[in-house]
Design a protein around this nucleic acid. Structure first.
Lengths: 240, 240
DNA sequence: GTGAAATATCTAGTATACTAGATTTGCATT
DNA sequence: AATGCAAATCTAGTATACTAGATATTTCAC
């Protein structure tokens, strides 16, 4: 057995594995994350590894990996030898998530408004149509998913899917806020109005108008946050 | 022993632990990351857990944790039951890292140019001064650190440190490119010129001029990447 | 020699055991 | 009852063992 044979690299490892079966750790992560974002687990709740192990029926390793990932997402705080806790909603983090989203999406829309295709405009218009229907049917969950789709399509069409990923990693903090106060009917009405304005600006291929529409769409969020943090202070943390 | 006692939350866990001693896993992560970014470990090199364990003198667990974090950073590819490899430099990822940085930094500079203090302008000017000295002394490492400091100060002064974090997490892919071709003297000269333009615009509190200066500073990078990927194709990967 | 099946070996994912340190509990003393 | 202190107990970090599956090597028929 020649040593050199063992050190040579594989010719072509699977860099782009199409389908990836989820590991146990991934499933635990997904579920815990969902629970935290939806406030089923609330800020400052302890996350006892032992209980999670019993709940998920796994060993400590996948649970621990999930918690470590959540820590990197700023969704849990881990204090060695002490405990793991659901992180409070850090206001500076939410504000910066919003700032980053605003910055990225205005840049995206400026690029997009000069190169978007007719088919893509039609697809965005179709999403807004379906949002109107979801609003009529009072299906807020569907409405939310369509909202996600609308914005992610902006990044995809502009050719910046990875920028979207980076923005979304921060956006999780904002998502948690959406569950502090479930969006009401008036809110959905405003969203539809704003989305329509964005689609129209893109249709006209007008970068200035499009940017203004995006800014308008995202403008009100910080004030909203301010109000929420006053009415539910136990969920928030101002310094970080 | 009352059950209720065991479920109550700690009054005030250490959310803001000032000093955090680094775990073994953190050290392994830092070192591996540095090796990958500086191309001491090159794209497509296998990362054998056993060898790393011997090298770092730890058990598998911290090494594995480090690799998982690197995977989330898109710096390594893990194929279950097969192997772990240093990821190629994905061009779409680098371009989007650049796009995000451009978007964030133009937004930062626009905010900053209306609220920056005289002391902060002076601090930025001082950094540029020190860059000029580093250039004269031919200290490229110092120059690079000052460059980092200049840009990170923009985020700090604008009050968006967490947005900076998100941008920097992507920027690691660009950093790897800096080691494909070490920046030369001409490059440092351009950087100093651009930084001076930014400081001057901030001094005048002129948002339009400031934004233009930032765009100008970051404008040339994609073309540079194009050239590099042609001359060193073995390090890169165009599709993702 | 060539090709294919059989075998050996290595891999990452998971389970479990152990450690040191932080926190809580309970008791003794006042 | 209040307080200080020691023991018990829980925690996250680390080490090790085991598994299934992917890859590499060898064997063997032809």
């Amino acid at each position: 057995m020649k040593a050199t044979k063992w050190t040579k690299k594989p010719l072509e490892p699977n860099w782009f594995r199409a389908e990836e079966e989820k590991s146990v750790a991934d499933k635990v992560y997904d579920q815990l994350r969902r629970q935290i974002v939806t406030l089923q687990r609330r800020p400052r709740d302890p996350l006892r590894e032992k209980l999670l192990v019993d709940e998920f029926g796994t060993s400590r390793t996948p649970v621990r990996e999930a918690c470590l990932r959540l820590q990197r997402d700023d969704l849990v705080c881990i204090t060695p030898k002490s405990g793991t806790f659901v992180a409070p909603i850090w206001i500076p983090l939410v504000l910066d998530a919003h700032f980053l989203r605003m910055a990225a999406e205005t840049a995206v829309i400026k690029e997009l408004s000069v190169k978007i295709s007719d088919e893509q405009v039609a697809e965005l218009a179709d999403i807004v149509e379906r949002q109107i229907e979801a609003r009529k049917a009072n299906e807020l969950a569907v409405f939310g998913r369509l909202d996600e789709l609308f914005h992610s399509n902006l990044y995809e069409f502009a050719g910046h899917p990875h920028a979207r990923r980076a923005v979304e990693r921060q956006k999780v903090h904002w998502d948690r806020i959406r569950y502090v106060a479930i969006p009401d009917m008036q809110h959905t009405s405003e969203v539809i109005h704003d989305h329509n304005a964005i689609v129209e600006a893109l249709q006209k291929r007008d970068p200035v108008l499009a940017e203004r529409a995006v800014v308008e769409h995202l403008r009100t969020l910080p004030d909203y946050l301010e109000g929420l943090s006053r009415s539910r202070p136990e969920l928030f943390e101002t310094k970080m």
